[in-house]
Design a protein around this nucleic acid. Sequence first.
DNA 1: AGAGCCATGTAAGAGGTTACATGATTAG
DNA 2: CTAATCATGTAACCTCTTACATGGCTCT
Lengths: 195, 195
Amino acid sequence: MTSTTRHTSPQPRPPRLGPAEHSLLGLLASAGPDGIHGYDLARQYTHGALGEIIRLESGMLYHHLKKLDRYGMITTHVEHQTDRPDRQVHTLTAAGRRQLDHWLREPVRATRDIRLDFLLKLFFTRRLIPAHLDELIAQQRSVLTALAESLRAQMQEPATGDDAIERRMVLRLRQAQTEAALAWLESLPTTENAT
Amino acid sequence: MTSTTRHTSPQPRPPRLGPAEHSLLGLLASAGPDGIHGYDLARQYTHGALGEIIRLESGMLYHHLKKLDRYGMITTHVEHQTDRPDRQVHTLTAAGRRQLDHWLREPVRATRDIRLDFLLKLFFTRRLIPAHLDELIAQQRSVLTALAESLRAQMQEPATGDDAIERRMVLRLRQAQTEAALAWLESLPTTENAT
DNA sequence: AGAGCCATGTAAGAGGTTACATGATTAG
DNA sequence: CTAATCATGTAACCTCTTACATGGCTCT
């Protein structure tokens, strides 16, 4: 076991992490203080419900792990094995956990982010901080409700211009998708009717 | 007016065009044989319904035009102006028109492509080949109906495994989004109830 | 005089895809 | 013997985003 993490330049830039990286933080949080290695992480994206939400090729997975290490979100140490290739075991840092918790608390702003980002938040909130589930759902509902109302208001405006029909088609689609997401949200199992 | 198009190597690779490039082909088809220049194209993405569907920065726009020229989908010639900067006027080629028509005839396979790709197809079919509108909508409806049925079948399967709840949440969201898109599709103005 | 339009781009970087490289071990 | 598993990556190539560069002209 040789520590290989170097924190000479912890945060090269303000870290803007995507859904893939946040899901990795979530898996590392689930793994606990003993850490987890890349190949094990990769398996969680190919088997299980996570793979239904997001697809992550091994190339990108290792790339993201490097990035998270550079940002000081995780630490990395090599675990030597005799009969198998060496593993790099990763552990979540306090900064990584803070980043994860912050991300989990934020609802998504746009309807199109429900499919990927919000599903991930839901998945990891259930697993890591189930007490916060109702709050996450409630906050997301209020964002989508506001969006739906704004769309309804735009539909009320008198149609003007030669592309009025096209604009209305677009608006109605956005409205339909937003309302479908809202209905789905409201059908979600909460603490009241938990399993 | 100096012709600058070179067709020494017309198709360097099998051309895989994205929605942005197809929308450019659509605008070039609307412009007719006299062609149209980049800045004029850019305006159609900032004003009008097109901008509600897709956002295209000028940098990417000029990049796509270069690519379309390399692929032999458009031709380019410089139009000299004395009081204004020179323009590069682009014209759709027969190959470009073939590509556009082929793309317009294909329904999208996934629900998430409705928001961008299908809206573009709808937009340009209405504008260029309105006689084909009903067919496009009917084909897309049959694709989405099949998808909805497959999702319903998956929901019927007995829930098994420890992440069964999560899998069902994902499935129900996909179902809700697909059914919302279907309902919207069926509410679209067809030739029967045209304006 | 300054803002903004006209017209075409470049530069730099983030992010992603697809495919392959390596090399040992184990299961069928 | 062959294939798959374990484990970590590299290489090449797209795409997209964001911001800026240029320089003359017109409008207020």
